[in-house]
Design a protein around this nucleic acid. Structure first.
Lengths: 192, 192
DNA sequence: CTAAAATATGGTCAAATGACCACATTTTCG
DNA sequence: CGAAAATGTGGTCATTTGACCATATTTTAG
């Protein structure tokens, strides 16, 4: 169950086998069915989550009830609502499984202890956070500046594997455009 | 010159007088004229900057030459291109003064030493980074989901002081809408 | 203090977008 | 395996947006 995580650690970090074993020993394995929630708005995010296999989406609901997707999280990546997790405040967002998903989770107390006890993990976590801010800024810039067609092309280029795993209405919700506009773009690209 | 920074530190952190003195002693005071650049795309960001007084904008240029503003930085706030600064890579963005601005700057080597020597500064810096990710996520959500009118209302509510200090074309560039749309919105709100 | 530059707004028009509906096809679920 | 749900696309139409231009006013710079 956790061998995927160990492979991930070996390829992405320089943690030792002992350190990885220590991290795994406090992990709580879990799975979510399709459409099952990991976090619902109004709840406090109490776990740091690693996705062993599957696909999650983090989304918010606008005042008119429409769903807008902030990010997708797929195999071998981490997810959480950092604000809710760190401040222990009610989340404004939801995290839900798009397909059956297997995860490892750590409580905040356990993970904080790991960060204290394993400096290399602390460093790696900070690297993830800073990397997240860089990609977040690029995402904001693209969202502000790109036409709907450029947004879709950027998505396809950046996440070619996700294209086949996601319904178009979710891609549209991620790009901030309507399903109608997205199918128009696809149509004009197919007939070019 | 630096008393503003000391007041800021006292009101926003629990750093001691000695620690603040230590930080100030390595600060490089500077000023920028209106329209002067702090950072230009293609350059490496070599300083962490605190704004004593004034107003900066961080922006990128889209492929068609249009400017899109990611953020404004006003008195008593920090700014830098974190990705360029940490990775020592060429920045994709620009930071320019909108009005005459006075700053304090630290080189990366000096600031890293401060972070090592003053744990409270390290903690505070991490708090700033995480707070930046929360506001960034909220900004992305608003940019994806809000109508042009909602974006403007949110801007006015969040930054009432900036409204008078910025030309409308810069507010439009920050909101990702055209100047024309922005003046339509203002017109309809004035005549309500 | 004045000329030049910048800004804010209105008018006009074309293009783009999104809502709604219908239908065929694919996927899901029990 | 079959019914139900979900998906993807096309058609239509109203609304919104943005580009361009003109004008008046305000701000800037020397």
């Amino acid at each position: 169950m956790t061998s995927g995580f160990e492979i991930y650690c070996h390829s992405h970090t320089n943690l030792s086998d002992e350190e990885i074993e220590r991290i795994v020993s406090t992990a709580i394995p879990g799975s979510l069915q399709r459409n099952e929630s990991l976090l619902q708005q109004g709840q406090v995010c109490r776990h740091k989550t690693f996705i062993l296999k599957g696909l999650l989406r983090t989304y918010g609901i606008a005042e008119d009830g429409s769903e807008y997707i902030l990010q997708f999280s797929t195999d071998n990546s981490w997810t959480l609502d950092a604000e809710s997790y760190h401040l222990q405040s009610a989340s404004q967002f939801n995290i839900t499984a798009i397909e059956r998903t297997e995860v490892l989770q750590w409580t905040r107390a356990d993970f904080d202890r790991l960060l204290t006890d394993i400096p290399a993990l602390n460093i790696y976590s900070l690297q993830l956070i800073t990397r997240t801010t860089y990609t977040g800024r690029q995402r904001l810039f693209t969202t502000l500046s790109a036409s709907p067609e450029e947004k879709y092309e950027d998505f396809v280029r950046t996440y070619p594997d996700l294209l086949a795993r996601l319904p178009l209405h979710m891609i549209a919700a991620y790009l901030g455009i309507s399903l109608k506009t997205l199918t128009r773009i696809r149509h004009s690209q197919l007939h070019r």
